[in-house]
Structure formats: structure tokens, C-alpha cells
Design a protein around this nucleic acid. Structure first.
Lengths: 108, 108
DNA sequence: ACAACACCTGAACAGGTGTTCATATATCGA
DNA sequence: TCGATATATGAACACCTGTTCAGGTGTTGT
């Protein structure tokens, strides 16, 4: 590669901003407990306390994580009386899970 | 949800091991510079030094990151004389990029 | 109105992550 | 073989992240 080609690639790669947005999103999925929470919500929508018991975390920790998931619009929430019900916002995560699951299952 | 349903969901969620593997993989994609490196390699295969100049990082930092990407089998490498050429291992990452890009571009 | 309940939030602290710097390894040219 | 080049690696350090703990907000039943 000569210096002209180098410059050409520089113009084609992800911008810093776009790369940051990607990293931020994938970073959210880079946590074991958040995957457990998401997989629980993939079974069915549920309240915070129920999530906490299912994944074996404190309610506070779950709440903190749900906040993160909310910001990335992976889950939506709805207050019902004194409870707050969380659900997966759409099936993007399920698709991502399937796609990556294949990758990880490939023989090395 | 009664306690029976709670137990049922507990059995259906991702195991700790599977969740950890998912988190580990996505965590690798949770870094701005790794996305810049991957997007450069998506344009064309290239040497470490070229990557370093294109993404504006030190060669050492790039090398460290490539190691991480290699472990997750996102890139493969081949020594050519004193150079080492890196390339994307397959198109999984490109697919992931497209899928997530849509998600991020959706109106809030 | 008030106590109990369900959830959220901020600060603090421990553990993890990415970069730099110095050095090591590997290959080529003379 | 020796110096130059290209990449890899280990330790150290600064920064980021997730949990806990203490306390706060919002809602219901009496």
C-alpha cells in the first residue's frame, strides 16, 4: 500500500463518532448479568423484583442495569401501580444473540 | 407471576457460562479503536504499521488490540516476511455492524 | 395521612481494561 | 553475522465499570 492508498482507506473507515456509538452499544452487551436479564425478558415481560430473583442479583443492581439497557433502547418499561414492568423493546437482541451464537459455536 | 413461573423462567434463561461467553464476545466489540481497526480491515487486508497510521494509534497499541481480536477469531493473520498481514476472518462483523447500525439509526 | 411496598439514584469502592514505555522476538539485506 | 526493520509482549498506570449501601421517590391500602 502506498501513501495514496493509505489516505484513501483513512477516508473510508468508520468516523470516530460512529465508532464510538458502535462501541457504546456493544459495550452494553458486554456484561454477563445484562445478558441474563435480557434472556429472562426474552421469555416474558416482568417486574424488577422478579428479574432480581431470577438472575440472582440485588434489586438495586438490576435497576442500575435496566437503566443502562433503557438508554440503549434495548428494553422498554411501563409503570403498573407500584410495579414497573420491563420488556424487550424489539427483537434486535434476539437476532444478535442468534448470529453471535453461531459464530461462537463454530469449530476453531 | 407466581413462584412456579419464576422457577420456570430460571430454567430458561441463559446459563452463567453462555452469558459469560456472549459478554466476552460483545465486550471485544465495545471499544472505539477496535471498531476503527475492523472497519479498516473491512476495506482491505493490511499490515500492522499501516493499520496504526490509518487509525492513528501507536503500533504497540494496535498490536495489543489485534491480539484481542485474534482471540475472538474476528481477524486472522499471516506473516509475510517481516510484515504480518491481518484480515477479517469472515463477514460476521460486517453483518453485525449492519444490523446494529439500523438499530442505532432508528428514530427514538 | 401514613405505613408498607416497589423501584430508583448517587456516592464510594473494587476489579477490569487500554494505553504507554521498555524490551523481546523474528526476518531481511548487506 | 550484524544492523535495521516489523511486530509482539510484559509491567505499570490511569481510566472506566458494576456492585453495594444508604437514602430517595412514587404508589397503594387502610
Amino acid at each position: 500500500m502506498d501513501s495514496g492508498q493509505i489516505e484513501a482507506v483513512k477516508r473510508q473507515i468508520l468516523s470516530l463518532e460512529k465508532a464510538q456509538r458502535m462501541a457504546e452499544f456493544f459495550g452494553v452487551l458486554g456484561d454477563t448479568n445484562r445478558w441474563r436479564i435480557l434472556s429472562a425478558l426474552a421469555v416474558q415481560e416482568m417486574r424488577v423484583g422478579e428479574l432480581a430473583e431470577i438472575v440472582g442479583m440485588s434489586e438495586s443492581a438490576v435497576s442500575h442495569q435496566l437503566r443502562t439497557l433503557r438508554v440503549m433502547r434495548l428494553v422498554s418499561h411501563e409503570r403498573q401501580g407500584r410495579n414497573v414492568v420491563y420488556r424487550l423493546q424489539d427483537d434486535h437482541i434476539v437476532n444478535l444473540y442468534k448470529e453471535v451464537s453461531e459464530h461462537l459455536d463454530e469449530p476453531h
